[in-house]
Simulated scan of single mutants.
Amino acid sequence: MKSKVWYVTGASQGLGLALVKKLLAKGYRVAATSRKAAELEKAVDAGKDSFLALPVNLLDESSVQQSIADTVGHFGSIDVVVNNAGYGMAGALEELTDAEARANFDVNVFGSLNVIRKALPYLRAQKSGHIFNIASVGGFTGGFPGFGIYCATKFAVHGFTESLAHEIKEFGLFATVVFPGYFRTNFLTSSSLSTPKNEMPEYTAVRAVQSTHTDQYNGQQAGDPDKAADVLIRTAEMQQPPIHLFLGADSYQFSAAKIDLVKKDMEALKEWAAATNI
């Protein structure tokens, strides 16, 4: 496994950076992307025999393709892809403009799809490989007022990863969607969490949830990103890795509550809804 080459997006901070450092410490070779490669090189102290920092614009297919070609050219292969790049978007659905909503989808959804599309020819040719798509517990349960668009992007990641896992199975490839809970990273700071340009005073509940996240949760998250990185690495080492990976005790709690709610809603109208065949 130590001969495997990892390709990690959004690696200059947070979970991505923790993962890159863990991988290098364990002897893996890593190509990592950021909008600014210099910041990444500064954050990661490693030689070019094991680490390659790549400046990539994930919304530009040619930039993504070049970075993956550079990875293969430098290390000889690409084996584990981690779509980690993304950012949070707070705000009620009514508050967010079309441009704000689409921008979040561009990075969180279409950026990952660009990577998948450009990496798969290499993975299929070698008939081995694993793609991790980092969603969020908000990609499994949307019960977070003021995070509807962000949840929608992560639900999309959840959905296409499930399909992807079945599409690439015949090539000996695996795909896993990851649902992290609250981890102690900079995700809840202004560098990773956007807010509406035109907030509406009527949405007091949304402002309260937003404030709770930025003022109370930020810096107090229970999750340790280094331990999360360990779980990702151990999952990649499995012969038959799962399609779904829930990270954090809180992720399990939120997701169990969602499953219970779905079961309750299904039973509530089962007699009517299940009797609709012609």
Rank of each mutant, 00 (worst) to 15 (best):
V44C: 05
S34E: 07
F171N: 13
K48T: 12
M1R: 02
S62V: 11
Q221N: 06
F132C: 03
V20W: 08
S112T: 12
P225A: 10
Y7P: 03
T9I: 11
R184K: 10
H158K: 04
G219H: 11
L113D: 00
Q240E: 15
I131E: 02
D49Y: 10
V177K: 01
V231S: 15
L40P: 05
F110K: 02
D60L: 01
K21E: 04
Y252N: 13
K36W: 12
P225S: 01
A229Y: 11
F51I: 07
P201H: 07
A101R: 11
A228M: 10
D224C: 04
S211G: 10
G16I: 02
R234P: 05
D265W: 14
F179C: 06
P55E: 03
A119S: 08
T176N: 03
N133G: 03
E95F: 11
Q66K: 13
D215Q: 13
L247C: 06
S12Q: 07
I243A: 09
E271H: 12
W272Q: 14
T97E: 13
P121M: 06
L19P: 00
E95T: 13
S255W: 14
F155V: 03
M89I: 11
K26W: 08
F75S: 00
L52A: 06
E39D: 13
V64M: 05
K197V: 14
L19I: 04
G88H: 04
F174C: 05
Q253L: 15
N104A: 15
G111E: 09
G10A: 06
K2T: 13
G91V: 00
R184L: 09
K154C: 04
I233P: 00
L269T: 15
Y122A: 14
P242S: 13
A85Y: 05
Q221H: 01
V20S: 03
F144Q: 10
A228W: 04
N108S: 03
T212L: 10
V8G: 03
L96F: 09
A152C: 08
G88S: 11
N84S: 05
Y150I: 08
P201M: 13
L40E: 04
K264T: 11
G111V: 00
F110R: 05
A85R: 06
A11G: 01
F75G: 02
A156I: 03
F155P: 02
I168R: 03
R234I: 11
V231K: 15
Y217T: 12
E61A: 00
L17Y: 00
V44A: 01
L58P: 00
K36H: 15
L93E: 10
R124N: 01
Q210P: 04
G172C: 01
P201S: 15
A275Q: 14
Q13A: 11
P121R: 11
V209F: 14
S3Y: 12
P121T: 06
L24P: 02
S163L: 14
V157P: 00
S50H: 08
F144Y: 08
T189K: 10
G16N: 06
